[in-house]
């Protein structure tokens, strides 16, 4: 650090050691990110053996089990499907609503405030609300669907293997579409108006304006929204935990939930292996996305 003791004023902050400023942050990162990461690796080569009541070294067993476990592949499929479908639906819906309420009118300001509210409800509680609304006997949503004839009188949502995942996704879409809306509206509001005015003068159709002007200019905002939403969708566990606990059968296990469930069944090593897999995937995909979408902080 002594070499940095220069006296050029504009970058004066360099003249001091950075450690006192960053030490608490770096300590937290080491204790809660680096240590758990290596501990996860350690756990993935061990397993609790009930007969000996101890955590024993099992070599690659957990990893072999991971790649031959049908439930794991199922949960990976659910996680991928959930992440991509929710992201797509929320982005498209969010963009539509954002374009609709992008206006200086104070009435639309109230709508933006209303949309904020869904985002701060604890996801577990949002799940509870929909658990009531999707209940097979007393729920509002099955009742509505039955009265318009979309599902049969004996059908349920959350106990049906094909519908259950959509029953969970509807909660996510309800709660987080406003996330996309608010970010995209903020992006739309910050765009300069001149290019749009000249485009209108040149006789461009609305769709052309959107395709050629709005989308490219919003590229950074959309990238950030996809990144953050994608991260949270990938690690989602609250909704399935509350609504279906992974059921019926294994139809709605996500990676995180399956990992948690193995942990509670005292398969600590295998649970850690699943969570480690999920972690490595998101670290690679997330950082690659930041790199290629050129998101800057």
């Amino acid at each position: 650090m002594a070499a940095q003791k220069s006296y050029s004023l504009p970058s004066f902050m360099n003249s001091d050691s950075s450690l006192p400023w960053l030490l608490p942050l770096i300590t937290m990162l080491i204790v809660f990110a680096i240590i758990p990461f290596f501990y996860n690796i350690y756990l993935s080569f061990h397993e609790f053996v009930p007969a000996k009541r101890a955590l024993l070294f099992v070599g690659w067993d957990n990893w072999i089990r991971l790649f031959t476990d049908g439930v794991f592949w199922g949960s990976l499929k659910v996680s991928l499907y959930y992440t991509f479908m929710c992201l797509l639906i929320q982005l498209v819906l969010g963009m539509g609503i954002a374009l609709l309420i992008d206006s200086d009118d104070p009435g639309f300001g109230i709508i933006r405030s209303i949309l904020t509210l869904t985002l701060v409800i604890p996801p577990a509680i949002a799940g509870m609300i929909f658990l009531i609304m999707e209940d097979a006997n007393y729920g509002l949503i099955p009742w509505l669907l039955k009265s318009v004839g979309l599902i049969g009188p004996e059908d349920t949502i959350l106990a049906d293997p094909t519908l259950a995942l959509w029953g969970v996704m509807i909660v996510d879409i309800w709660q987080w579409t406003p996330f996309m809306v608010l970010i995209l509206v903020a992006g739309l509001r910050s765009l300069p108006s001149e290019p749009f005015e000249s485009a209108v003068i040149d006789g461009a159709r609305p769709f052309q304006v959107f395709r050629r002007l709005t989308l490219p200019m919003l590229h950074k905002v959309i990238a950030v929204a996809i990144l953050i939403r994608g991260i949270d969708l990938w690690r989602m566990v609250d909704y399935v935990f509350v609504l279906t606990s992974g059921g019926p059968g294994t139809a709605t296990y996500t990676l995180s939930l399956y990992s948690w469930q193995r942990f509670t069944f005292v398969q600590w090593g295998y649970g850690a292996t699943i969570s480690l897999f999920s972690l490595i995937v998101i670290l690679i995909v997330g950082n690659a996305f930041i790199h290629f979408a050129k998101v800057k902080w």
């Binding site: 758990p36 991260i231 972690l279």
Partner: peptide, 13 residues
């Protein structure tokens, strides 16, 4: 990257 970590992968260790 810390923001990306699935919370379950922190919670178990």
């Amino acid at each position: 990257s810390a923001r990306m970590m699935p919370l379950i992968s922190i919670a178990i260790p």
